[in-house]
Design a protein around this nucleic acid. Structure first.
Lengths: 152, 152
DNA sequence: TATTGTTATACTCTATAACTATA
DNA sequence: TATAGTTATAGAGTATAACAATA
């Protein structure tokens, strides 16, 4: 598999030997994005995963823990720990579902809403600097394609 | 950003409350792809990370462990363990660099080349079924955008 | 003095099984 | 019988510091 540069016609094919491997590109882009997001959220003592749960609670969708697990592609047992941590800081609250007493709905608290607003700004900013090479429209079409890849 | 306050029009965008969040989409797409790739590689007793190192060795680029670490966005100490595992199975070999006796160049073995050929087929197949919704040209433009996001 | 590979260590993340209380 | 949340645990992945050999 000769990746020799024969007067690059097909765009800049740098990216190394694995540049054609979608899984690799996905992994590396994700590693960069997650590291940047974690660094940006550090000042609020948040990380990407707790932030995602906080954002779901803040969205007002009132998802159950099971739904959160499925959405974030986590095991339900992991969601327990994440909600525990956020609840300990009074950022979210487990609310009983009157229609099914087994389920907990994860709701945002005032403190959680306030922290989420600040965190969302930091995340958006980190995303822009992490993918600064891409224009806004390119980022949007990347998001479009990723949405289809992430929700098959 | 404008994608954050779209809770009101939930329904126009499928993908849920975080569908506008590039980091989230990247994380979820990567989780799906990694799980599919791991499942596909299981029959060869490989996983994505060892496979990536194997693929780099098979590419003939003769990278040092340090270069592999940087390329795969891993810590050098993790590469030690990965190369150890592959070397134990005689799939790669550490070869001394005559120009710098500190460095090891990771080279493929015949057995490694044979296994990599089989693994690459499985990975490509898994990728196609995992992102089956996307056309070939869409996958190519996704790869283009990801390449820019992964190598800023 | 700086760098490569290495060891050690701790922490986060992921995956599985089993338990409880409800349905 | 099945499902939501929980607990426990083990394994994989990530991050940091320190050390020996070499530059």
């Amino acid at each position: 598999m000769s990746t020799q540069d024969t007067a690059g016609r097909s765009g800049t094919l740098d990216g190394g030997p694995l540049a054609g491997d979608l899984s690799f590109l996905l992994a590396r882009a994700n590693a960069l994005a997650a590291a940047a997001t974690n660094a940006a959220l550090a000042e609020l003592e948040l990380r990407v995963r707790p932030y995602a749960v906080l954002a779901l609670a803040a969205s007002g969708t009132r998802m159950t823990q099971r739904e959160i697990a499925e959405y974030l592609r986590l095991d339900p047992s992991q969601v327990v720990a994440l909600v525990d941590g956020l609840q300990r800081r009074d950022l979210v609250a487990r609310e009983p579902d009157p229609r099914d007493r087994r389920t907990n709905v994860v709701a945002i608290t005032p403190a959680g809403a306030e922290l989420h607003a600040r965190a969302a700004l930091l995340v958006a900013q980190a995303e822009r600097t992490a993918h600064g090479d891409l224009t806004a429209t390119e980022r949007e079409s990347l998001a479009d394609l990723l949405r289809r890849a992430a929700f098959p």
